[in-house]
Amino acid sequence: MKRSLPVSLMLFGALFASACGDSRVHSQAVYMLVDTSGSYAKQVNKAAKVVNYLLATLNPGDSLAVAKVETRSFTEKDIVAKVTFDKRPSQSIEQKRAFKVKIDSFARDAHGSAYTDITGALIQGAEYLNETKAGNKTIVIFSDMQEELNKGTVRDFPIDLKGIRIVALNVSKLGTDNADPRLYLDRLARWEARVRKAGATDWVVVNDLENNMDSILNSR
């Protein structure tokens, strides 16, 4: 009896510790990049709908951040809103409401930027996601994937996206793509090769936002 009590306590403790320590492994973290450069800034309302979808789908304990892609995007200043939902459903619902208000305000006041620093935003996103220690990490890029860097911005170095899933959303065709579709296909292939080389677990392109929204998140 004297021996069995500590053993039982240890077993219970181990079970408790395993139960508690396991929570982050099952959680999702999503970092959404919204391209606000040039004509693409007009599509911010579409991006807000995607954010709404993410808010509806993510569970308590998950993390979500929305950032804009601007001239130089490797900065926290570009993060529009970020949140790690509370474990309690009632609190997480309140957080989601507050998040929606921020996104609506962003969608109203969004203005176009001169350049598009997707790489910088990806590095910033990867940093944020790694900090969350979530089990499933996803970067959603709402952009035409046409990177344009201004003078002095250095992004031609290998980046680290280990364990992160990359989803390119609403990759619209540019005027030049229509003339030569190979440009569009090459652009996508180049990005895929780059993110896979950086260690991304998956590369998904979703253009049908009406019917294929489910592909954005990994099913748990």
């Binding site: 079970l15 569970n59 304990g61 474990k87 309690r88 459903p89």
Partner: peptide
């Protein structure tokens, strides 16, 4: 089951598919 998540948290798992 749903309101219990309000007490013990909705994101804690005991095994891969078993929520606390």
């Amino acid at each position: 089951a749903l309101p219990m998540s309000e007490m013990v948290g909705a994101s804690d798992y005991i095994t891969n598919s078993l929520r606390t």
